[in-house]
Every structure is written in structure tokens, then in C-alpha cells.
Measured scan of single mutants.
Amino acid sequence: MQIFVKTATGKTITLEVEPSDTIENVKAKIQDKEGIPPDQQRLAFAGKQLEDGRTLSDYNIQKESTLHLALR
């Protein structure tokens, strides 16, 4: 499925993911596309910060959802 990640600079990244993917996997995909190390990424959805060990389906993130990326 496709999801979107909006960066602090307003850029939107499109990612191909599975509901079973962990947040860690998603951060690795962002690193592949943007070169941002996962340990510098903070992802949020619906106002909640997402934890590495959880999956997209844990957070009820569905196709075409938009996550927000902040850098630490």
C-alpha cells in the first residue's frame, strides 16, 4: 500500500509499505529515499509519536495515510 510522509520542510515522500511493516522498517525506507538516518527520525500520526517496534497496523495506519516526520 502507499503512504505519504510529510517532512518538516513541507516535502511529501511517497512510500510503498505493508500494514505489517514496523515503524523501524518505514524509517529505513525513508533513509533509502532521503538519506536521513533512522535514529534522527521521529514519526507521528494523528498526533501520536510512533514507536520503532510497533507496526503500521498497530496504529491503524491505512493506505494513503500521511505520517509526519520530524528530525531530532
Rank of each mutant, 00 (worst) to 15 (best):
D58I: 03
L71P: 08
G10Q: 06
I13V: 07
E64M: 12
K27S: 02
Q49M: 11
P19G: 07
N25F: 10
K11R: 09
G10D: 07
D52Q: 05
E16L: 14
T14A: 08
P37A: 13
I23F: 03
M1A: 03
T55R: 07
R72C: 05
G53C: 04
E64D: 13
I36M: 06
L43V: 03
K27W: 02
F45I: 06
Q41E: 01
A44K: 09
V26A: 02
Y59L: 05
D32Y: 08
Q31E: 12
E16I: 12
R54D: 06
K11T: 14
D52N: 15
R54F: 11
Q41N: 02
T7Y: 14
V26S: 01
S57E: 08
L43N: 00
L67Y: 01
K48G: 07
L56F: 03
N60W: 05
S20K: 10
A46E: 15
A70F: 11
D58A: 07
L50Q: 01
G47Y: 05
D32W: 12
T14Q: 11
E24R: 15
E24V: 08
F45E: 02
E24A: 15
T9I: 09
V26T: 06
E16S: 11
A28R: 13
K48V: 14
E51P: 03
F4A: 04
T55Q: 09
Q49C: 06
E51F: 06
Q41A: 04
D39R: 14
L67F: 03
L71S: 13
K63L: 07
A8M: 09
G10S: 07
L15F: 05
T66H: 15
I61A: 02
L50T: 02
V17S: 03
G35R: 07
D39C: 05
A28N: 12
R42T: 10
K27E: 01
G47S: 06
N60Y: 08
D58R: 03
Y59W: 03
L69S: 02
E18R: 12
A46S: 12
I30C: 02
M1S: 03
Q31D: 07
T7G: 07
L50F: 02
G35F: 06
A46M: 13
D52L: 05
R54Y: 14
V5I: 13
S20I: 09
T14H: 08
P38W: 11
V17R: 00
T14V: 15
M1W: 08
E16Y: 14
E24D: 08
A70C: 05
L15Y: 02
T66D: 03
R54C: 05
P38I: 13
L56A: 02
R42Q: 13
L43Y: 03
L67P: 01
I61H: 00
E18K: 12
N25S: 15
T66L: 10
I30K: 00
T55A: 06
I36T: 07
V26G: 00
F4C: 03
D39Q: 11
V5M: 02
L50D: 00
D39T: 09
T7S: 09
T66R: 04
V26E: 00
D58K: 03
F45R: 03
K33R: 09
G10T: 06
Q41Y: 09
H68Y: 08
E24N: 11
H68S: 08
Q41K: 01
E51D: 12
S65N: 06
Q62Y: 10
K63N: 15
I30M: 03
Q31G: 07
Q2T: 09
I23R: 01
S20T: 11
